[in-house]
């Protein structure tokens, strides 16, 4: 046995340990990580990846698969590479869903358990699952729900956490003309009805990087997956410093405030900062006003040490991306779920 080193895979942020004597690919397999590979003989290039930091030694390989100039740039073949220090590797060829979640998607039938308006246009929907289906997901993921009586599907992120099994909770925005959420308002979808649910999907899941502070920015129904991540952190007793900026129009559009404010006491070093965009939010409002991104820009200083999670309507996500990049945050530290905003997709998050 040789020395052990830590391999960190980007941008999926998975860590594992390898022995110098084994190839990085074999080390990954030993940990049950399915990395893309082909021949394992240094010839097909399916496992070609980029060494961001650290050093590797290579066994014999084909220079067609890895020409010298590529090796000099930092490329390597994982099937022939041995770590001789801790190594950060950027994967190029991978399926993030498979690699990260490792949870197969399932098609199940769920029953509507609760349905209530949270604001004038955001509804809370809770679904009961059949325990026999064994449906699993990770905080931050989403499912596809079929619009009853059609083949159309809508995607919604869970606000619930997996520790409450067999119960999925959603926060769904009703856009005018929306086919799915339209059913909440006009009563065609009611408690007891059955829905086809498929999932989980998505990679808006929390990366384990204790040294980096967490910055959540959300808007509208984009609160759901962030709530799920925060609830999961509360359960795990996570102590990472974190802040959640949430943008809404007026006080009437704020919801889930009690839980979020409560989290400020339950979670170590967490702050919830609601921001209202209404020019005149009323006399009772003492909080922040304006665009959520402007508030982030004003209150946050250097952003280079954060991991940022963004979820909300595209203009908000785009503006936040622009801000974060301008503040020096690396692109691969930003994770986002962008809504599609047409009435057609009803604020589904994909």
């Amino acid at each position: 046995m040789g020395d052990k080193h830590t391999i960190r895979l980007q941008p999926v942020d998975i860590e594992f340990e390898v022995d110098e004597d084994e190839t990085i690919l074999d080390g990954a397999f030993r940990q049950g990580l399915m990395l893309m590979h082909g021949c394992k003989e240094g010839q097909c290039a399916a496992c070609k990846s980029f060494v961001l930091e650290g050093e590797v030694d290579m066994d014999k390989y084909s220079t067609f698969a890895l020409p010298d100039f590529e090796e000099e740039e930092g490329w390597t073949l994982l099937c022939k590479a041995h770590a001789v220090s801790d190594v950060d590797i950027e994967l190029v060829n991978y399926d993030e869903e498979v690699l990260r979640s490792g949870i197969p998607t399932k098609q199940v039938v769920a029953t509507v358990a609760e349905l209530e308006p949270l604001t004038s246009d955001i509804w809370r929907l809770a679904l009961d699952l059949d325990p026999a289906d064994g449906f699993e997901y990770k905080p931050g993921q989403y499912v596809d729900i079929t619009v009853p009586g059609t083949d159309d599907v809508r995607s919604f992120s869970m606000a619930s956490v997996p520790s409450t099994p067999n119960r999925l909770e959603f926060m769904i925005r009703h856009y005018p003309g929306g086919k799915f959420a339209g059913g909440f308002a006009d009563g065609t979808l009611q408690v007891g009805h059955e829905l086809d649910v498929k999932g989980p999907f998505g990679s808006f899941t929390l990366r384990d990087r204790p040294e980096r502070r967490l910055l959540f920015i959300g808007g509208g129904a984009g609160m759901a997956p962030i709530v799920s991540l925060l609830r999961a952190r509360r359960e795990a007793g996570c102590t990472r410093r974190s802040v959640f900026y949430y943008g809404a129009r007026g006080t009437a559009d704020l919801f889930q405030v009690d839980e979020l404010e409560g989290l400020q006491h339950q979670l170590a070093d967490f702050a919830f900062v609601p921001v209202l965009s209404d020019a005149d939010p009323g006399p009772d409002w003492t909080g922040e006003t304006g665009f959520v991104t402007d508030v982030v820009a004003r209150l946050e200083g250097d952003l280079r040490d954060v991991d940022a999670y963004l979820c909300g309507p595209p203009p908000m996500v785009d503006a936040a991306m622009e801000l974060l990049l301008a503040q020096g945050l690396a692109e691969d530290r930003i994770y986002f779920d962008k809504f599609t905003t047409s009435a057609e997709t009803e604020g589904s998050s994909l």
């Binding site: 893309m36 082909g38 021949c39 010839q43 097909c44 290039a45 399916a46 496992c47 070609k48 084909s62 067609f64 698969a65 060829n93 399926d95 498979v98 998607t105």
Partner: peptide, 22 residues
């Protein structure tokens, strides 16, 4: 070897499609 070094593309195509089929 020059042929085989193109294989990564093909393996990747196949994998994406089978995941979609599944």
């Amino acid at each position: 070897h020059s042929v085989q070094s193109d294989e990564s593309r093909h393996i990747s195509n196949g994998y994406s499609i089978i995941l979609m089929a599944l």
